[in-house]
Simulated scan of single mutants.
Amino acid sequence: MSDDEAKERLREVLAAYSVGSVLHLLSELIEADARAARRDGDDGLDQQLFHAAYTLFVVGLGLHAILPR
């Protein structure tokens, strides 16, 4: 998929979800990857992924406050 195609798909998603909600969903996916890394014993990766997930969640809260639906 090209960047332009990906942007078009994101525009379609943003027609149904706020930007903050999209980031919250993405944070949930990354948190699931962090849990998988923890189960696999990759402590460094799980911590990095948890931090990334939490950061996306907080940024999502801020964007939701600025750009509510």
Score class of each variant (00 low, 15 high):
Tyr54Pro: 00
Val59Pro: 00
Thr55Cys: 03
Gln47Tyr: 08
Leu56Phe: 02
Asp46Met: 09
Val19Tyr: 09
Arg11Gln: 14
Asp33Met: 14
Ser18Met: 07
Gly44Phe: 07
Glu5Val: 05
Gln47Arg: 14
His64Arg: 13
Arg69Cys: 04
Gln48Cys: 04
Asp3Ile: 08
Gln47Val: 11
Gly41Ile: 03
Arg69Met: 08
Gln48Ala: 14
Ala52Trp: 02
Arg39Ile: 05
Ala37Tyr: 00
Gln47Ser: 12
Leu63Thr: 04
Gly60Val: 00
Arg69Lys: 15
Ala6Gln: 06
Arg11Val: 06
Leu25Gly: 06
Ala52Asn: 05
Phe57Met: 10
Gln48Asn: 11
Gln47Leu: 13
Ala32Tyr: 13
Arg39Phe: 06
Leu23Asn: 04
Ser2Asp: 08
Glu5Arg: 06
His24Val: 12
Phe50Leu: 08
Ile66Asp: 09
Val58Gly: 01
Gly44His: 06
Asp43Trp: 07
Ala6Glu: 06
Arg69Pro: 11
Ser2Gln: 05
Arg35Thr: 03
Asp42Leu: 11
Leu61Met: 15
Lys7Asp: 09
Gly62Ile: 09
Arg69Trp: 09
Ala34Gln: 01
Glu28Thr: 05
Ile66Trp: 09
Arg69Glu: 13
Ala15Arg: 15
Arg69Ser: 11
His64Ala: 13
Asp46Cys: 09
Leu67Ser: 10
Tyr54Thr: 05
Glu31Asp: 15
Tyr17His: 13
Val13Cys: 03
Met1Asp: 02
Asp3Gly: 04
Ala36Arg: 13
Leu61Cys: 13
Ala65Thr: 13
Leu29Asn: 12
Leu49Glu: 02
His51Met: 07
Asp43Arg: 07
Met1Asn: 01
Val19Asn: 03
Met1Val: 03
Leu26Ser: 12
Glu5His: 04
Val22Ala: 10
Glu5Met: 07
His51Gln: 12
Glu8Trp: 06
Ile30Cys: 01
Val22Ser: 03
Ala52Phe: 04
Leu23Gly: 03
Asp46Trp: 03
Phe50Val: 04
Leu67His: 15
Met1Tyr: 01
Leu25Pro: 00
Ala15Cys: 05
Asp43Asn: 09
Glu8Met: 10
Val13Ser: 03
Ala15Phe: 07
Ala34Asp: 01
Ala34Asn: 02
Leu63Gly: 04
Asp3Leu: 10
Gly41Arg: 04
Glu8Leu: 13
Asp4Thr: 13
Ala65His: 14
Gly41Leu: 06
Ala6His: 03
Leu10Met: 10
Ser21Asp: 15
Ala34Thr: 01
Leu56Val: 00
Leu10His: 03
Leu29Val: 12
Asp43Leu: 12
Phe57Gln: 10
Leu23Trp: 02
Asp3Ser: 08
Leu67Pro: 01
Gly41Tyr: 02
Gly62Ala: 12
Val13Glu: 08
Ala52Thr: 10
Leu45Val: 08
Ala65Ile: 11
Val22Arg: 01
Ala15Lys: 15
Ser27Tyr: 01
Gly44Asp: 14
Val59Gly: 01
Leu29Cys: 09
Tyr17Glu: 14
His24Phe: 14
Glu5Phe: 04
Pro68Asp: 09
Asp46Tyr: 02
Ala36Asp: 13
Leu25His: 11
Ala15Ser: 15
Gly62Ser: 12
Val59Lys: 03
Thr55Ser: 10
Leu49Lys: 01
